[in-house]
Simulated assay, not measured.
Amino acid sequence: MGGFLKSSIARKLVMALSGLFLVFFLLQHFLINFTSVFGAETFNGISHFMGTNFFVQFLLQPVLILGVIVHFVMGIVLEMNNRSARPVGYVKFHGSANSSWMSRNMIWTGLVVLAFLGLHFYDFWFPEIYHKYIVIDPEDPMRYYPELVAKFADPVRTGLYVISFIFLSLHLLHGFSSSFQTVGWHEKFYKGMRGATVAFSIIIPIGFIFIALFHYFNQL
């Protein structure tokens, strides 16, 4: 496995597969959170199931965390390799003439998304672990909606969420579609998927922004 991952092609493949894996969880996360716009009951029910289900908590959740780590570590490794492959900068660089802004700045948009994940873990995942496994508070199936809404009472935190999802959109606009190329999709299938990946990369982050702003303005 170590020899396999020394190959640039293999690293890109791992990067692509982990990215597609995270896109699936992003969609799932959005669909669950979006139910909070319609009220507490459905959101509390789904969140309670996800928060107490053994398969989700002890199998899917560790796999998700591993996927996040693998994706971002591989992204940093690939960026370092790309930089070391050209230690002397080009005399003249024409920017978008050779590649899009998103493709040239994937490492920076990715780092912003990684910082957002740190904030998200601090806001939701760590309190959940503290609640269930450290202080061992009694389980309250109605607590999830008030906890979510309370996070968006702060305008600074809400603003950080909005900015983070803008950068996530920029990251997805290049990364999502290029993942299908990396895993070897035929060109005719890739062209068909391109429009769908662009739509996903715009609609899902906008949806998350809507959720944050909805709960913020609903408390004013």
Rank of each mutant, 00 (worst) to 15 (best):
D123Q: 10
D137H: 10
Y90F: 13
N98Y: 14
G2P: 02
I32R: 02
G51P: 05
A10M: 05
F4R: 04
G118P: 11
W108A: 10
L5Q: 14
F25M: 10
G45W: 00
G75A: 10
K6I: 01
T52L: 01
Y130L: 14
H48A: 05
E41Q: 12
I76Q: 06
I76V: 14
T35F: 01
S103K: 11
L78V: 11
G39P: 04
F54W: 06
H48P: 03
S99N: 12
R104S: 13
S47M: 09
W101I: 13
H94A: 10
F30Q: 06
L20F: 01
A10K: 03
L114W: 05
M102I: 02
L13A: 02
V112H: 00
I69Q: 07
H48S: 10
L13M: 05
M80H: 05
L114G: 01
G19N: 03
L20C: 02
G118A: 08
Q28C: 12
F124P: 08
L66S: 13
L60N: 03
R104T: 10
Q61T: 13
S99E: 13
M15Q: 05
V14F: 03
L27R: 03
F30Y: 15
A85V: 07
I129F: 10
P127M: 05
S84W: 01
H120Y: 08
D137Q: 12
L59G: 11
I65M: 13
S8T: 15
I69R: 07
H71D: 15
L64I: 15
M106R: 15
G89P: 06
A16K: 00
L13V: 04
S47I: 00
V37Q: 04
F124E: 11
V70N: 02
K12A: 03
G95W: 00
A85K: 02
L22K: 02
P127L: 05
N105C: 04
F30N: 05
H94Y: 15
M106G: 04
L17F: 08
N33A: 11
G95R: 03
N82Y: 14
G110V: 05
L64A: 09
S47A: 14
F54V: 13
L13K: 13
R11S: 07
V70F: 11
L59H: 08
M102D: 10
L22H: 02
V14A: 10
N44E: 04
A115E: 01
F24I: 12
V68R: 06
G67L: 03
L27E: 06
V14N: 01
Y130M: 12
I107G: 12
V113N: 03
A40S: 15
